[in-house]
């Protein structure tokens, strides 16, 4: 009996080795463990064994049964796993094939840069306001301390639509409208489109964009102006950027300055981009001229303020190293989609 059990175990083990499918395993199970299976058969013959041997043999048979059962189950899992792996292996993809991306559009580069600027100034407490593009002589010139036939009008060739009606040459016009409608403290920026009768070439466009900034409050100084512009410059050009003031002239500010930043290309050492000076001119600024404050009904003895005007187009072309400003207005899709 014992021998027979051992023989069956060995035979089953051998058969298991050769089993390679679920079907093979099922056949094995039926052969050994089924109702008419060989081990079941042995159990049936237990009656022929001496009574004192019966428990021992019975135990041996049951042991063999469970051993074979376990082995069959293990093998079944293994085969199932192998089958799954085989299936997955067959499903492998070429990861270098192109992505199926849903195309997303892009903002115009001018507006991408503008959005960054708005975020920076908003975080410094500036409100973002708007002004008309068709302006009156009063707002674009008179109130900005540029009376008729003042030589400063030569600085800006103006498009006229009618007598005293023109396309604004500067967003500074919005300064006046702001000061007329708000009381100090004032802290606003006004981004917008401006126009000058410049022939179109690689660096000139009759349509361009500015961001005007204005702060009016008690006790505002040039040091405050430098503080704001320094923070702005560092956000745009990097945290080590230095700001330099150079005296200049604008009719609506006094003192007036041109503002330079250390060249971001060479860090101020001097290179081709900054023409060796280490500095790049980025904007004009100054303390609001007392005549301008007065024109808006603000007492210059009580309040002071500063204003600055940033050229958005120039900032954008420098940032992206765009060589020709005309590209900004041509709107070739292949150009636009470079800026995402």
């Amino acid at each position: 009996m014992k021998e027979k059990i051992e023989q069956l175990k060995a035979a089953a083990a051998e058969a298991l080795k050769n089993a390679s499918s679920k079907e093979d395993l099922e056949a094995l199970r039926i052969k050994y463990l089924g109702k008419k299976g060989e081990l079941t058969g042995l159990l049936k013959q237990l009656g022929s064994v001496a009574p004192e041997e019966r428990p021992k043999i019975g135990q041996l048979v049951n042991e063999a049964k469970s051993k074979i059962e376990t082995a069959i189950n293990e093998n079944r899992d293994k085969i199932a796993r192998a089958a799954k792996e085989l299936k997955l292996a067959g499903e492998a993809v070429d990861i270098t094939m192109p992505a199926k991306e849903k195309k997303v559009g892009v903002l115009h580069p001018l507006n991408r840069v503008l959005d960054d600027m708005i975020d920076i100034f908003k975080s410094m407490g500036f409100d973002v306001v708007d002004g008309p593009e068709v302006e009156t002589d009063h707002y674009n010139f008179e109130c900005l301390n540029v009376p008729a036939d003042h030589p400063a009008r030569d600085m800006q060739d103006t498009f006229y639509l009618a007598d005293k009606l023109l396309l604004r040459t500067q967003t500074s016009a919005a300064q006046i409208r702001t000061m007329e409608t708000r009381k100090p403290p004032i802290r606003v920026i006004c981004p917008g489109r401006v126009f000058r009768a410049d022939e179109v070439d690689a660096t000139h466009s009759p349509v361009f964009h500015q961001i005007e900034g204005l702060v009016v409050d008690k006790g505002i100084t040039m040091c405050d102006l430098k503080g704001v512009l320094e923070q702005f410059a560092r956000e745009i050009y990097g945290k080590d950027t230095e700001v330099r003031f150079r005296p200049s002239f604008f009719p609506f500010t006094e003192p007036s300055v041109e503002v330079d930043v250390t060249c971001s290309e060479c860090g101020g050492k001097g290179c081709r981009v900054c023409k060796g000076s280490g500095w790049i001119e980025i904007l004009g600024a100054g303390m609001v001229h007392p005549n301008v404050l007065r024109c808006c009904g603000i007492d210059p003895d009580e309040y002071s303020g500063f204003a600055f005007g940033i050229g958005l187009d120039r900032l954008t072309t420098t940032k992206y190293k765009i060589s020709d400003i005309r590209l900004l207005f041509e709107n070739d899709k292949r150009f636009l989609e470079q800026f995402d």
Binding site: F121, P185, I189, E230, S256
Partner: peptide, 26 residues
């Protein structure tokens, strides 16, 4: 302006934005 441009604009030391802490609006 006359005094400052001769005295030197490099003497202007930047001060951070002062006044109430406010967040700008659009």
């Amino acid at each position: 302006e006359e005094v400052m441009r001769i005295y030197g604009y490099d003497h202007i030391i930047s001060t951070p934005m002062r006044g109430d802490v406010i967040r700008g609006t659009k």
